[in-house]
Simulated scan of single mutants.
Amino acid sequence: MKAQSLLLLCVCALLVACGGVDPNSPQGQRQTLFKQMLKTSEDLGGMLRGRLPFNEQRFAQGAQQLDELSRKPWQHFPQLAESERSSAKPEVWQEQARFQQLARELEAATATLRTASTQKPLAAAAMAPLVQRVEDSCEACHKAFRAY
């Protein structure tokens, strides 16, 4: 009896410890993509704000990567609301037209940044408003559709 109780307790502890999101689920896949976007965006912003040294090649590569990433998470938002706990507000599914509009605005902002980053020589001052536009696009969607 003691052994069974101990086994049950261990199984419960493991289940609680594994309470994360399945990385293969739509939520897990979009979380991975959003984390990659955040890391890339932070590096670009870091170069512009002096936290990281400005490197033209790394900046252009980051802009290209961010543009590619910005097109991927939307496919991982199913048409119906998810049953699992999510950082997405119910409005994501209730206001699909607005959600898709903000997604396209982000894609347009990253495309503009990518195109501008191919024009050499790169000037940090010229890139700053374009990165700000990307950041503003992210923030607009978060304010409307992300539950903090």
Rank of each mutant, 00 (worst) to 15 (best):
Ala103Asn: 12
Pro73His: 03
Ser83Asn: 12
Phe34Glu: 03
Arg114Ile: 07
Ser25Asp: 06
Leu44Val: 02
Glu68Ile: 01
Phe77His: 01
Glu105Asp: 09
Asp22Ala: 08
Leu14Asp: 10
Glu82Met: 12
Cys18Trp: 10
His76Ile: 01
Leu33Met: 07
Glu105Gln: 11
Val21Phe: 05
Glu95Ser: 05
Trp93Ser: 04
Leu15Phe: 09
Ala88Pro: 04
Arg114Asp: 14
Phe99Ser: 00
Pro26Ala: 10
Pro23Ala: 09
Glu56Thr: 10
Trp74Thr: 00
Gln61Asn: 10
Phe54Ser: 05
Leu66Lys: 05
Ser86Glu: 01
Val92His: 00
Ala88Ser: 15
Arg71Lys: 14
Trp93His: 01
Pro73Gly: 04
Glu105Gly: 06
Phe54Pro: 02
Glu56Cys: 08
Arg114Pro: 00
Val92Arg: 00
Gly28Tyr: 06
Ala81Ser: 09
Asp43Ala: 11
Ala108His: 07
Glu68Met: 09
Arg85Ala: 11
Gln36Asp: 15
Ala88Asp: 15
Leu66His: 00
Ala17His: 06
Leu33Ile: 09
Gln94Ile: 04
Pro73Tyr: 06
Gln119Pro: 05
Gln100Ser: 15
Glu105Leu: 14
Lys39Tyr: 13
Leu15Gln: 09
Pro73Ile: 00
Gln65His: 12
Glu68Ser: 08
Thr112Ile: 09
Gln119Ser: 15
Met47Val: 04
Glu56Ala: 13
Arg85Ile: 14
Gln31Arg: 10
His76Phe: 15
Ala108Tyr: 01
Pro90Tyr: 03
Arg85Glu: 10
Arg30Val: 02
Ala111Ile: 04
Glu95Phe: 00
Gln64Leu: 14
Gly45Phe: 06
Ser41Gln: 09
Lys120Asp: 13
Gln94Ser: 05
Pro23Asp: 10
Gly20Trp: 02
Ala17Asn: 00
Asp43Lys: 09
Cys18Thr: 08
Ser117Gly: 04
Arg98Lys: 12
Leu48Cys: 10
Leu52Phe: 12
Pro26Leu: 11
Gln119Glu: 14
Ala108Phe: 04
Glu84Tyr: 13
Arg114Phe: 08
Ser117Ile: 00
Ser87Pro: 13
Gln29Glu: 09
Phe59His: 04
Gln31Ile: 11
Phe99Trp: 06
Gln119Cys: 08
Gln29Cys: 03
Pro121Glu: 08
Leu44Ala: 05
Leu113Tyr: 03
Leu102His: 05
Ala109Arg: 03
